[in-house]
Design a protein around this nucleic acid. Structure first.
Lengths: 185, 185
DNA sequence: TGCTAAACGGAGACAGTCTCCGTATTGTCG
DNA sequence: CGACAATACGGAGACTGTCTCCGTTTAGCA
């Protein structure tokens, strides 16, 4: 890639990161272009669709996901405690941007989604948490990680669109956790 | 209201019902106006916001909700069976139009939403199902009907945006149900 | 230094939302 | 019946966002 192209690409991604954080994923792309000091054409050449741009923006976020997963796996406590801890981290992770929960949860299980690769990190993270608990016989095994992701993602989506406080989701996550755990609470 | 105003209002609602069913709730309002044979100004005078129009369209749907609720309350079977039956009916009800689950679940608990009155029917219906089960001591009492609506609405929202088959949601609803029920399964 | 492939960027086509205001219709009252 | 408010209509157009085309510029190589 030519040097100027690389420079512009970087500026667009950096600008997009800020604008998305402030205004959500449906912010105007032309505005992002202008703010980055490039023409709309340049933005659209680098990122033909909105999702392609979101994908690029998420690169740093992916690292954060991986780090958080490690911590969640090492979390102390009983199965219920660990499961809930992961759920809360998960909601926090996908809610960093407005509209994020819907976007990410929607992309899961959709092989053709441009941001699918990014969701995979999350999905495998959830899979690991679940596998660990399953190995102890703590959670039922007739539910797939994808289904769990959709359950928790659904709650996060509603919380996001209704501007609910993060703490508000806890009781709902508990219901899901209790529905998944095998042993009596 | 003047006779011509009433006539136009009716035509707009009827047209909107069809267009929403075909294209979802984000269909173009100017197109609905044109299709109804009125100017955009007329549509916007009758319905200042999109939600106001959706509210009017939903009037017939409300009757359907009430009828379905009666049946669900009369449904035979154990607590788990009855709860799940209601969940499935609920998902079906809010998913009649594309985008419906997000729209309806988002409006719940939002006192200022124009479509709130319509959601109330659903909410009280859910409350009745839950109350009945609670009276038998079958479901935990530390979870509010609103939280249950959000849990189930979340699943419906994801299913709607991911174009999932209706049958696909059953396992997820089971998790929620099991998380709510008090007795061992 | 000159050339060419690569990249830029902005004008503008297109679509949707929503408003303003001149025009038309309704229904009432003398 | 006829006229005159009050009410309602509707479309032109302002505004915003998406996305493309193509004439112009620039990087990087020989």
């Amino acid at each position: 890639m030519r040097a100027d192209a690389q420079r512009n690409r970087d500026r667009i991604v950096e600008t997009a990161r800020q604008v998305f954080r402030e205004q959500g994923y449906d912010a105007s792309l032309d505005l992002i272009a202008k703010q980055a000091g490039v023409g709309p054409g340049t933005l659209y050449r680098h990122f033909p669709t909105r999702d392609d741009l979101i994908d690029a923006v998420m690169q740093a976020w992916v690292d954060h996901v991986e780090e958080t997963t490690e911590k969640a796996l090492a979390h102390e406590g009983g199965p219920r405690e660990r499961l809930l801890h992961w759920f809360e981290e998960y909601v926090r992770l996908i809610s960093v941007h407005k509209g994020g929960p819907a976007k990410i949860t929607g992309a899961m299980g959709d092989d053709s989604s441009p941001i699918r690769s990014k969701c995979e990190v999350l999905q495998s993270a959830g899979g690991r948490v679940l596998d660990d608990l399953r190995a102890e016989g703590a959670v039922r095994d007739d539910v797939t990680p994808l289904q769990v992701a959709r359950l928790v993602g659904g709650v996060a989506t509603i919380a996001d669109s209704s501007d609910l406080e993060v703490g508000t989701v806890r009781p709902m996550l508990e219901v899901i956790a209790d529905g998944l755990l095998t042993d009596p609470r």
